[in-house]
Each structure stands twice: as C-alpha cells, then as structure tokens.
Write a protein that binds this DNA or RNA. Sequence first.
DNA 1: GCGGGATGCATAATCGATTTAGCAGTACGA
DNA 2: TCGTACTGCTAAATCGATTATGCATCCCGC
Lengths: 341, 341
Amino acid sequence: MTLADVARMAGVSSASASLILNRRAGTRISSETQERVRTAARELGYRPNIAAQSLRTDKSHTVAFVSDFVSTTRFAARMIRGAMKAADELGQVLIVVETEGDVEREARAMHTVLDRQVDGIILAAERARAVDIPDFPDSVNVIMLNAMNDAHPHAILPDELQGGRTAVRELTAAGHRDIGLVGYDFESGIGGSSPSVTLERRMHGIREQMAADRARFIAQGGSRRWEPEEGYRIARAQLRAGPVRAFLCLNDRLAFGAYQAIAEAGLTIPDDISVVSFDDDDISSYLRPGLTTVALPHEAMGRLAVERLYRGSPAEEVLVAMPSIRRGSVAPLSVGARRTG
Amino acid sequence: MTLADVARMAGVSSASASLILNRRAGTRISSETQERVRTAARELGYRPNIAAQSLRTDKSHTVAFVSDFVSTTRFAARMIRGAMKAADELGQVLIVVETEGDVEREARAMHTVLDRQVDGIILAAERARAVDIPDFPDSVNVIMLNAMNDAHPHAILPDELQGGRTAVRELTAAGHRDIGLVGYDFESGIGGSSPSVTLERRMHGIREQMAADRARFIAQGGSRRWEPEEGYRIARAQLRAGPVRAFLCLNDRLAFGAYQAIAEAGLTIPDDISVVSFDDDDISSYLRPGLTTVALPHEAMGRLAVERLYRGSPAEEVLVAMPSIRRGSVAPLSVGARRTG
DNA sequence: GCGGGATGCATAATCGATTTAGCAGTACGA
DNA sequence: TCGTACTGCTAAATCGATTATGCATCCCGC
C-alpha cells in the first residue's frame, strides 16, 4: 500500500494525497477531496514508508541510543526504559547499540547509526563519566546522557550536589549529628573507583549540608571499590571504634555490607542505628528493613534525553533532581535507646 | 558524500560505482576502474545511505526487538545483549521497543517497526510464555524469543527438559537421593505463577532424572510466587520436618530464602546441606557460598534469534541448552557429618 | 469583455541508491 | 568483409515519498 495507491483510489494525484495526509494544505484543497483521500487511506490501511520519507526529508523519526552497557546493571536499563517511553509518546523509535566501552565499537556504532539517518544520538554511560567519542559531522544532534564530553556541551546528569545535601538531611532531620561515612574519606580523598565530576559534586553537597546542619563525621572509611565487602569492613570498624548511631553510605552495595555488620553487632535498624545511602539499587528494596536511599533518577534522565533531542532544546547541561526514597532505615535519634543493657 | 560524488571523482557513472562497491561486477569492469572507484570512495569517506538502499532493495539491515520488558530483570537484558552482539557481527542494527505486555502497545510497536522496513521482528518475552500478537502480513519474518505463538512456529526456547535433568544430576552425582523440592508440589500441582509449557517441561525432566537415578523427594513445597519469602518458609518447614540434606529450588530467589532458613537452623552449605537451583540470577553469584544453578541461556538465545533471522533459517522450535553453573553449594553426601552432636 | 486574483489540483523534480537493458568498441573466425 | 561474441561501461527506470512550480477555471470588479 503506497501513497500512489491511495491517490489512485481517491482519484487525485499523489502530490495532493501527500499534502492532505500531512495536513499541510491549508485551505487550498476542497474538503470533499480531503475526505475522499482520508477515507481511501483508512480503507487501504495506508502507512507511509519511512525509508522513503527519510530519504526525502532527512527525518527518520529514529533516535540512536549508544551506551557502554545496557545489561550490566539495571541503571542503564532504566535510562533505556525512560528513553523508550518518551520515544513511544513522540512517535519516535530507538536504535540501541551497546559498545561495552570499547573505543573501536563506539566509533563503529556512531557510523552505523549515522548511516541510518537517525535524527539524533544519545550517548549514554552507565556511570556518570567523561567519555571519549569519535569525531563526526557537526550537523549531527548529540546529547550526552549520564556522561560528559568537552566537544558536546549538551548533557543530562543527576543533580549530585542536591543529592548529597538530601542524603545528609535525611539523617539530620531525624536528629542525627554524629555520623559515620562509609565509602569515602575526606582526609585522604579516597573513595570511588575513579575521579569523577559527579562524585565531587555529591561530596560537595554532603559537606555543605553537614556544615549547615552542624553535623560532623565521627568516623570515615574510604575505599575504591564500593562493594558489600568493603561496606561490611568499614562499618564493622566504625562500630567497634565508637558509638555510631547513623551511617551515610555512598551506595547501596556498601549499605548492604553495613547491614551485615550491624546485624553482627547485635544492633537493630533503625532503632539502634539509622542508615542512608545512594542509588536506589534493586537490593535497597530487598533489604529488611527497606533501605532509605537517594535515587539516581535514571528513568527521568533517559526520558529527558529523547524529549530534548526531539524538541531541539539548547545544548546545555541539565541536572535532574535526585529524589529521596524513604523505606524505613532511618528513625529519630532517641537518646539512650542503645546499649542500655 | 553520495555515490554520485564517488562516481564523479572516479570519472564513471554511478551505476558502475554501485556495481563495483557492491562487488557484483564479476569480470565485467576493468580492474583499473575498480581501483579508481574504491580509492575515491575511501578518500571521500563514502558511506551508503541506508534509507535509500532500503527503499530500493527492501533490506534495511535492521531488526526489531519487541519485548514485553527490557528492564525489569536482567534476563531480558541478557537476551538483548546477545541479540545486539550478533547484530553487530552481522552488520545489523536493533530497534528495541518495550511494550510492558500491553496489547495495544504491542500492536503499535509492530506497526511502528514495520513502517521502518525492518528485515525481521524478534518478539521476546521475559518469562517463557504464549503471547498474543496482532496480525500482520505473512511476508514479515517473525521469530519468537522465549515465547510461543500458534501462528508463528519459529521459536527459541530454553531446553527445560534437559535443564530439569541437569539440576537433578547435580545432586544425585554427589550422592544425594533424598531431596527436598522447593517451589513445586507434584501432588497438588502447585508451583509457579502461571501454567507454562516450559515449567511443565522442566518438571518432566526433573521427574525423569529422579526416577533414573533412583532418587525421591522426601519433601515438597509448592508456591505460586517464587520469591525469597516463600523459599524461606518452605525450606524451614522441610528442615523442621525431617533430615533433609539436599534442596532442589525452582529458582534462585527461592534458593535465596532457603539459604536464610538453613543459616537459621545452624546448618552450613554445602557441608551439611546441598542446594541446587535454576536461572543463574544475579543473586546466585552474590550468595556465600555461591549458588550452583542451572542457567537460563538468555544471551545465547538472543544471539540465535538474530542469526536465524539473518540466515533465513527454517521456522522451527529451537531449544537452547541450559548449562549448569557450579559455584559451590553442592558437596558429596558424607554420612553422619550432620548433627553428630 | 477583460485583467487580476484566488482556488483546486497536477506535473515533475528530487532524495540516494540498485539494476536492467543496451550501446559502443574490439577481437575473432569464416 | 561481415557476422558474432565479448568487454566495459552508461542511460534510465525504479523504490515511495515531498514539494516547488504551474496550469486551468472561476469569480469579481470595472
């Protein structure tokens, strides 16, 4: 079923059919003719051939989502999901390519999708970071998702500054002032696997809010890997060293480890000790009690990427709020409730 | 950079340029001319416009991956990853659409991708099941991935019969004959969330292998939901009822719960009790000791889907082997090692 | 009765490839 | 010398849309 078929059935030229079906005609075509064409299109089940459209108009209604990882964690998947929902709403479609961080595959991916005349490219990274990307024509619309690149200022990132503040406030609002920090050490600067702008921002937010609320870290434990084992190790050390009543963990896996250490010490969350963390990983809802965590808003970010490409929004850095997900690992500090025995 | 540019630079017609770059010419074009054209293409960085190609040839080198879920579990993501790897190797690209199981969105997705002249459609389901799909032209190449549909015999499924046998053999090979079954009850038929062909096959394989190895279920606990809580409940009941030394769990989340019950009973895995499960979920590698599980081969299945579409393989049901992932939750039965005190 | 403008539609070019049919030129055998 | 068979390439149609231009026709005012 082509446009020509529709035109023939309606007894008009395909030019008119095109004008009518694209509603570009204004008043220049009689309403009877318009009706005839629309009816014909409906009866024949006409659907435009997008390859032909794209050839002529240079619009493919297709966006490329090029990511270093799609399946390692659910984070990347959430960004994809957000992007796909927005695409669906806007009549777009997503070509998804995984590069596994391989530079050669990245370059290949860029070309492959450009060959398909995509309307824009979303370059996503699983963990917010600066990425190297191959050169390509300036005409191409590119947006960095959870990633940064000097040549491409259009980027969507989590608002880590606000996120850091929010996490601290979860604890201070419950009365906590003496807090154990798990995963980072301000003195040595150790924390996280690589120097990352977003981590800096998060730590900055944490520091600001701690000062604002007159709270202090009575213990700090840094580690490069942010896995349950390290969380366990650091939390145990802090519990042994002193009377910690609140942990601020830099991600949910660290918090998972901290939970173990807390249980081992015979303490109860949140009555004896409160825990707050970052990311909203799957495990945070599996844990008992559920972990209160400041979420990385990946779905919202993915959605925004598609929408901004579609709208041709200005190339600027966009920060997406990190909401706090309260699940029950924080309780008001009640003096003397702990270790009364 | 179009083909015409290349042709102009090489001083030939675009027809010749096309023939040469597609290597269709055979001996009909002089090698000097061929060289000139290839050089021109290289120097100009010529890349064919796939929209134009697709318009003319009806091949878009694009495959649609329509799935009910892409981001809920890592299973779906693994299928996508396998599909993408194969696509990358074959010079194809994947359009990914998520329908969330919504019939209307499924229909819309089918049309959207058909409009884009995809070479084939992969219809994937997160959990192996029969799916309803909208009608579309017979000319479209469709393959069911982890799903079944009467109208479309071309399907790729895990070999659950073999998988069931394999799981049992993991235990019987270690000397276990008296086994506790977690998640299913042969007498009541209760187990799993919905009647599923693949579950039937798995249970059939389990039954066969149990008989072949002269083993028996000394306890069975069925449940519709296969979540950690149920695993915990069922395992605890079985441990209290009698001297179970081996658990066969129907998925890793049930096993996760069983681990808790076992720890609570003061028993050690695998010395006191062996555990085998299905799926190879993430948690199976997080657990201590690592969980021995019969994996759902999702990545291999995704890969196969793209390859078979590409090759135009016959429309048949393809079963993919479920490999056993040994991690240390199974140990040889040593009589008297348990509860000696 | 005629120029001018609006109305309603068609013609044809175009996007960038593929592919069939066929045109020159040469070689060769009879 | 002529017919035939290759060889090496080009012209032009084609895929299915969009869009600039143009051609009738009619209405209107003068």
